[in-house]
Each structure stands twice: as structure tokens, then as C-alpha cells.
């Protein structure tokens, strides 16, 4: 089958790959590029485990074709930390025990990054609705939301009692 050549930027580095039309961006990330941090929980955009940021927009990588990545800049969970230094969101998820099995965690962290990039001061309700597309079956969302609210305050330079 004919493949399409695609050139994109992934986590700040230029990436070139060949992909078939029906391959989603998630397929490409996981099976072609080898970035397996983005997870497939449903393949239909309902769980958010495959969340990535494409040109500053949060998307489900299972709902975008690999060929559509041409010329785009993509951030995956592997690109959230700065080298050896965890992103404050990652650190806060650890401190708050905001993960149990860890399968939805990459998607939640990417989605939280997108939230705080757009709205550094979300209310709890805004955070919950923003993250409604990221299913977590382990935590009941409590510690996730607490971590998000607290890291948002940290990143704004506020200290929360």
C-alpha cells in the first residue's frame, strides 16, 4: 500500500515518517515512531488516554490521521518534562498520589498542561469540565483535581495553604 511521507515536529525535534492513510496519529506515535507514552484506551476519542497537543490545541491522537501531522508541532507526554527535570504538573501528580494504575496519567498530564497554558487560573468546575474527556477509573478524580488546582497555584506563583 502506498504510504505518505510526513514531516512534523515532535517534542521539539523534527520527525519524518511514512504512514498509511488510515493510520491515526496515535498509531504513528506508538507503532512507527516508538513513542508509547500515549495510550489507546478506546480508539474513539472517548477516553483521552491518547491526548497530545498539536499546534497548541489539545486533541485525541486517535481522532487525527497521521498524514494530517504534516507541518505540525506535536507535544506528547514524552515531551512534557524538561530533560531530567519533571514538569511541575508531573511532580504534583506524584506528590498528590494523583495516579493509581497510571494508564490514563499521560493523557491527564498532557490535558492539564493544555488547560494551564490556556487558563492559568481555572476554577475547580472549569478544571473538571476541561478534563471530562480524560477518563480515570482508579482515582475518582479527587486527587487529580486537587493536584491540578495546586499546581496551577504554584505556577501562578501563589502558595496554597
Amino acid at each position: 500500500m502506498a504510504k505518505t511521507y510526513v514531516s512534523a515536529t515532535i517534542n521539539g525535534e523534527s520527525a519524518e515518517f511514512l504512514c498509511e492513510t488510515q493510520q491515526t496519529l496515535l498509531d504513528v506515535l506508538r507503532d512507527v515512531i516508538g513513542l508509547t507514552g500515549s495510550k489507546e484506551g478506546c480508539g474513539s476519542g472517548d477516553c483521552g488516554a491518547c491526548s497530545v497537543i498539536v499546534d497548541d490545541r489539545l486533541v485525541c491522537s486517535c481522532l487525527m490521521l497521521g498524514v494530517e501531522a504534516e507541518g505540525k508541532s506535536i507535544t506528547t507526554i514524552e515531551g512534557i518534562a524538561n530533560g531530567d527535570t519533571l514538569h511541575p504538573i508531573q511532580q504534583k501528580f506524584l506528590e498528590y498520589a494523583a495516579l493509581q494504575c497510571g494508564f490514563c496519567t499521560p493523557g491527564l498530564i498532557v490535558a492539564t498542561k493544555a488547560l494551564l497554558d490556556e487558563n492559568p487560573n481555572p476554577t475547580e468546575t472549569e478544571a473538571r469540565y476541561w478534563l471530562a474527556g480524560n477518563l480515570c477509573r482508579c482515582t475518582g478524580y479527587d486527587k487529580v483535581i486537587r493536584a491540578v488546582m495546586d499546581v496551577a497555584a504554584d505556577m501562578r506563583g501563589e502558595t496554597v495553604a
Partner: peptide, 9 residues
């Protein structure tokens, strides 16, 4: 329509 992720598309 859908999630934040879907809103991006």
C-alpha cells in the same frame, strides 16, 4: 460537542 480534545478538531 465532545471533550476539550474534540473541541480542538
Amino acid at each position: 460537542i465532545g471533550s476539550t480534545q474534540v473541541q480542538g478538531r
